[in-house]
Amino acid sequence: MIDKNKLNDLANRLMFKMEDGEYDTLLREFDITLKQMEFIGNIKDIEKVNPMFYPFDLELDDSYLREDTFNNEIDFNSMLINVKDYEGSKVKVPKVVE
């Protein structure tokens, strides 16, 4: 059973907040989605079908296994363009340990 509390819990795990009205819309969407999926669940022998995760078998050659090679593609100065704050050659990030 899905209710606002469940959705609120999911939103919190996804690290965002939602407004009350947004949950109402979401509950309606879940109602439709779950009914549709119930219909899929009733397809005969659906559980015996091998799930498809990619459109077709990938054609991987041996080259995807390779030796590690040093490749410093991003230099410090070009990286700084997205950095809010830095000191010397060190990027300042939010404190992550209390």
Binding site: L10, L14, M15, F16, E22, E29, F30, T33
Partner: peptide, 21 residues
């Protein structure tokens, strides 16, 4: 929490919740 709350629109959040569920 603040970054993702302000950074995503309602539609995106709804899709993420469905995806997570």
């Amino acid at each position: 929490m603040k970054t993702r709350t302000e950074g995503f629109s309602e539609l995106i959040k709804r899709r993420f919740v469905i995806g997570s569920y």
